[in-house]
């Protein structure tokens, strides 16, 4: 009995703190703007905007789990939806009803194209990291440039505007009164959670992140597993791209640039160890909720996006300080 209690305490300290933080932020924002914050609209809009960021944070977490990082996720997200957008423009007319009413098989093909782009881009990262042994930071800085660069070459700079209605549903639609992006996010989060907790692949990732050498001596296929984790990261990034372009009806080479820091922040705040070995999907969900409440509260208070950036950056530093403090007392 005490063993179970101990276990609960140990496992959930971080989650409890995060839940507390979420409640605190919620209370503070509600107290600061009682009129405007406590409206259904505010929460509804969060359910549309948060998922794309949440997916990027999960992607980041997966890369960090093996002690790596993926700085190319934004590039992958943009490249995936730009390719899909150009595909739609090629098969439909660039604008007008023909594009908007594109048939579902073609939209499905576009989704497949975007996903494949993400998986392929992730596979390139994975090959560089596992085969050529380039350190993940530099490998993904480099590929991030290349992916963004390809976006620029393909579009020449301006946004690809106009996506089919069905595609837009993924980013804007609702099902059973719930935002479709939220459903996508929750399904993906549940799958990744299940993968990390219950599958051989997920546990191998954690073991490799803890000690790659011991993993090799235990007979784990370290190279293949790490490679697959970057493929997965790329795939998750492309789903984020689909949601982003679906919501905004556009795709551009430099969309979502500030998401990179935010994804790292959420992953770190969620209790992911950037040196590898520890990750938590419920942590991501809570950290995402906390930070989305914070930033929409601030936006209601007419804080500019730049100020929100300042606060996000400050939050990252604060969460580092908190983690350091927690480790000291432990």
């Amino acid at each position: 009995m005490t063993a179970i209690a101990q276990r609960l305490r140990r496992v959930d300290t971080n989650l409890l703190q995060l839940a507390l933080l979420t409640v605190l932020i919620f209370a503070a924002m509600a107290a600061l703007n009682p009129e405007r914050f406590l409206r259904p609209y505010v929460f509804e809009s969060i359910t549309f905007v948060a998922p794309e960021l949440g997916l990027l944070a999960i992607a980041m977490m997966v890369a960090m789990l093996t002690g790596g990082i993926d700085l190319s996720v934004i590039g992958i997200a943009n490249l995936s939806c730009i390719l899909a957008g150009l595909f739609f423009h090629a098969v439909g007319a660039p604008r007008g009803p023909e594009l908007a009413n594109l048939a579902w098989p073609l939209v499905a093909a576009g989704i497949g194209l975007a996903l494949c782009t993400g998986l392929l881009a992730g596979a390139i990262n994975g090959l560089l990291i596992t085969r050529l042994r380039v350190t993940p930071i530099l490998a993904t800085i480099g590929t991030g440039q290349v992916y963004t660069g390809i976006c620029l070459v393909l579009t020449g700079g301006p946004a690809v505007v106009g996506f089919p209605k069905l595609w837009g549903l993924i980013g804007n639609g609702t099902a059973f009164g719930i935002a479709v992006p939220l459903i996508v996010f929750l399904v993906v989060a549940a799958l990744v959670w299940f993968m990390l907790a219950r599958t051989a692949f997920g546990i191998n990732l954690a073991l490799i992140g803890t000690n790659a050498r011991a993993a090799a001596f235990a007979g784990l296929r370290t190279g293949r597993t790490v490679f697959l984790s970057y493929v997965l990261t790329g795939g998750l990034a492309s789903i984020a791209g689909i949601l982003l372009s679906g919501r905004t009806n556009a795709a551009k080479s430099d969309y979502g640039v500030s998401y990179l820091l935010q994804a790292v922040l959420i992953a770190v705040l969620a209790g992911t160890n950037p040196a590898g070995g520890r990750a938590s999907v419920p942590g991501i969900v809570l950290a995402l909720a906390a930070l989305m409440l914070l930033s929409s509260g601030l936006q209601i208070m007419r804080f500019s996006n730049f100020l929100v950036d300042l606060i996000w950056g400050g939050f990252l530093l604060l969460s580092i300080a908190l983690a350091a403090w927690r480790n000291r007392t432990r």
Binding site: A200, L207, R213, A214, L220, G277
Partner: peptide, 23 residues
């Protein structure tokens, strides 16, 4: 450095090579 996954539980250390068999 070659045998253990220090930050992980005893169970995970113990089962590291058995996962395919147990899944």
């Amino acid at each position: 450095t070659e045998g253990l996954f220090l930050a992980q539980t005893i169970d995970r250390n113990m089962l590291a090579t058995s996962l395919p068999r147990l899944s």
